[in-house]
C-alpha cells in the first residue's frame, strides 16, 4: 500500500481533487494538526499516525469548500461522518475523494488527556477497515492499552432514577461555559444557523447558567440523535471536560435497539430522523 505522501502526489498529478484535507505535524511532538494542502509542493507536510485524532470531515461542509472537489484523509469513524453527510444531502459523493485509513486506533487525546491510551471509540470500532473509500492507506500504529470506561458509565446512568440522572447532568452542565466548541468541531453540526444563534425568538438562553446550559446541551443531544456517528470530537474539545459521549452514545444505543438504525454506515439508507415511515412505533406521527 502506498504511503500518504505518494497518494497525495498522485491525487494532484491525476487531478482527482483541487485540495487535500489531511494531517500535518503540529508544533509539538506527539500531536498533529489538520492541514489543507493545495499544491504538489505542500504534500510533504502530510503525516499519518496514531495522533491523527481530528475528524476532518467537519471541513467538508464549510462554505468555502462547498462544490469543490476535495480529497480527504479519513479514518473509518471519520468516514461514518462523510457517509452521514452524503445521506443527509450535505455533500455529494462525487465531490469527495476519500483516502480511507486502515486504522489500528488513535490515542485518547492531546494535552490533558491520557495520550498513552487508546481512544474509547476505537475499542468498539467496527470500521477499522473503512466501509467507503476511493483509495486506502494504512496507518502504522502500535498496540495501545485502554478500556472503554464510558460503556460502564452509560450502564450506571441507565440504572439511575430520573432524579439521580438529572442531578448528575446538572453537575456536569454546571461547568459548561457556552463556547460552543462542541458544535464547531462536530462534522454533523452543519446548520447554517444554529438554533443557539437564533434570537427571534430566543430559544436557547445565551447565558452559561443552569437553564441556558441545560437548554443547549439537551437540544444538541436531541439534534444529534440517530445522526451522531460517535467520533467523540465534541468530548475531546470541550474545555470544561463535560462527558458528552455519554449522551451521544446513549442516544445511538437507543437508535440501534429501538429502530435498528446505525448512523454513518450506508450513504443510501434513509436517515432515521429524516424519514417518515408509517411503520414507526410512535403513533403520534400517523
Amino acid at each position: 500500500m502506498a504511503d500518504i505522501i505518494s497518494i497525495a502526489k498522485s491525487i494532484f498529478e491525476n487531478q482527482k481533487a483541487e485540495m487535500i484535507i489531511g494531517y500535518a505535524k503540529a508544533t509539538k511532538e506527539g500531536r498533529t494538526r489538520p492541514v489543507v494542502v493545495r499544491t504538489l509542493d505542500e504534500v510533504k507536510e502530510l503525516v499519518l499516525n496514531s495522533f491523527c485524532l481530528n475528524n476532518l470531515s467537519t471541513y467538508l461542509t464549510r462554505k468555502e469548500n462547498k462544490g469543490k472537489r476535495v480529497a480527504i484523509v479519513a479514518k473509518g469513524c471519520d468516514i461514518k461522518a462523510i457517509v452521514q453527510l452524503i445521506a443527509e444531502n450535505q455533500i455529494r459523493r462525487e465531490n469527495v475523494y476519500v483516502v480511507g485509513v486502515k486504522c489500528s486506533g488513535v490515542r485518547r487525546g492531546f494535552e490533558g488527556h491520557d495520550s498513552t491510551k487508546i481512544a474509547e471509540k476505537c475499542i468498539t470500532c467496527n470500521v477499522k477497515t473503512p466501509h467507503l473509500f476511493d483509495e486506502l492507506v494504512e496507518m502504522k500504529g502500535e498496540e495501545l492499552p485502554g478500556t472503554d470506561e464510558k460503556a460502564e458509565s452509560i450502564v450506571k446512568l441507565e440504572q439511575m432514577t430520573a432524579n439521580e440522572r438529572f442531578a448528575y447532568w446538572e453537575e456536569q452542565f454546571e461547568r459548561c461555559i457556552k463556547c460552543y466548541a462542541c458544535r464547531q468541531i462536530c462534522p454533523l453540526c452543519y446548520c447554517e444557523r444554529c438554533i443557539a444563534d437564533k434570537s427571534m425568538p430566543r430559544w436557547i438562553e445565551t447565558s452559561p447558567t443552569k437553564r441556558g446550559n441545560f437548554a443547549w446541551n439537551i437540544v444538541r443531544a436531541f439534534h444529534l440523535s440517530g445522526r451522531c456517528i460517535g467520533c467523540n470530537e465534541c468530548e475531546r474539545v470541550c474545555p470544561a471536560g463535560i462527558p458528552l459521549s455519554l449522551i451521544n452514545r446513549k442516544m445511538a444505543k437507543v437508535a440501534k435497539s429501538e429502530f435498528g438504525y446505525e448512523s454513518g454506515m450506508d450513504p443510501n439508507a434513509p436517515t432515521l430522523i429524516g424519514t417518515y415511515d408509517v411503520k414507526d412505533k410512535e403513533d403520534f406521527i400517523r
Partner: peptide, 11 residues
C-alpha cells in the same frame, strides 16, 4: 483554513 472557530482559546 483549519481553525473551526470554536473560541475555546478565548474562553
Amino acid at each position: 483554513d483549519i481553525c473551526v472557530g470554536c473560541g475555546q482559546c478565548t474562553f
